[in-house]
């Protein structure tokens, strides 16, 4: 008995130690630095909760604007990406010629790195859209990325395009796991396509929704590289998401301690929202 306990910890140790080194310890150090006036170099003086007080009462670095922007983006992106991913999954699980090819094509954008993707789409939004505007005079294609509205939707388009295929893979696995017997039974009972979708398919893939929502929620909240590549958060910080805002505080303005305080608030928010969402969708899952 004793031996197996030792074995348990022995096998767990590599994972536990690396987790501690790259996640736990840095988090604790980070929380400590959020209580100091550290400038990224030199001495860090302990100043208590001053950074937090400043953050909540007298922030001048656009943090709360970025917070709102990011939250709005996360909600919109989570819905859009999952709807698109699910729709694509439904499409490619239908048996027709080329379905496998389509799966590959839809998944492909996900293989491109965020920065590269951002620059490629920046070209589309600026050069291509502008060319369309010049040719047709359609106001819609004018001045993309120059304000928070077009910046927001541009980022949304890029993210849906990139992550839709990824979600699709998760939903394909879930849809294929639905037992044929259930489908057949519903067909015998006379359920049509829509009926089957809402009464059979969707309830049966709720576990996949749990995963999908969780992944995309934390992913959209922490979005950094696409944001940086597409607009750098500009003009005038109006497209700046939280991660970029924290980065700018830490590395451009050298307010490392203050940026750490922001990061702690950020961590708490993302964790809270994710846990609430996990609990909520867990409840909706059905036993199979």
């Amino acid at each position: 008995m004793k031996r197996s306990k030792l074995g348990f910890w022995l096998f767990l140790a590599p994972c536990l130690i690396s987790f501690a080194i790259v996640v736990l310890i840095p988090t604790i150090i980070g929380i400590y630095y959020s209580l100091t006036d550290w400038k990224g170099s030199g001495n860090a003086n302990f100043i208590g909760f001053e950074n937090y007080i400043k953050l909540f009462t007298n922030d001048n670095s656009n943090f709360w604007y970025s917070f709102g922007y990011t939250a709005l983006f996360a909600v919109t992106a989570v819905i859009c990406i999952n709807v698109v991913g699910f729709a694509l999954a439904l499409l490619v699980t239908k048996k027709f010629r080329g379905a496998t090819l389509l799966r590959g094509i839809f998944f492909m954008p996900n293989l491109i790195g965020g920065l590269l993707l951002g620059f490629a789409w920046q070209f589309i939004f600026k050069q291509v859209f502008n060319a369309i505007y010049t040719a047709t005079g359609m106001e819609f294609f004018r001045n993309w990325l120059t304000d928070s509205t077009t910046g927001f939707f541009a980022l949304l388009i890029v993210m849906v395009w990139q992550m839709g295929g990824y979600m699709m893979i998760i939903y394909i696995a879930a849809i294929q796991n639905i037992p044929d017997s259930v489908i057949e039974a519903s067909a015998i009972d006379g359920a049509g396509g829509w009926r089957r979708l809402f009464s059979i398919t969707i309830p049966m893939v709720v576990p996949a929704f749990t995963v999908g929502l969780f992944l995309m929620l934390s992913n959209s909240f922490k979005l950094f590289d696409q944001n940086l590549a597409l607009t750098k958060g500009g003009p005038n910080h109006c497209n700046e998401m939280l991660a970029l805002n924290i980065y700018n505080s830490a590395f451009v303005s050298n307010e490392t301690g203050y940026a750490q305080a922001k990061a702690v608030i950020f961590l708490i928010s993302v964790a809270t929202i994710s846990i609430i969402q996990l609990i909520a969708t867990k409840r909706a899952e059905v036993e199979t």
Partner: peptide, 21 residues
């Protein structure tokens, strides 16, 4: 000051150019 030129003044000028300030 660190970041003043780009994050504060430069960004504000962007808002001036786009007509928001």
């Amino acid at each position: 000051p660190d970041g003043w030129g780009q994050n504060v003044f430069g960004a504000a000028v962007q808002a001036y150019i786009s007509g928001e300030k």
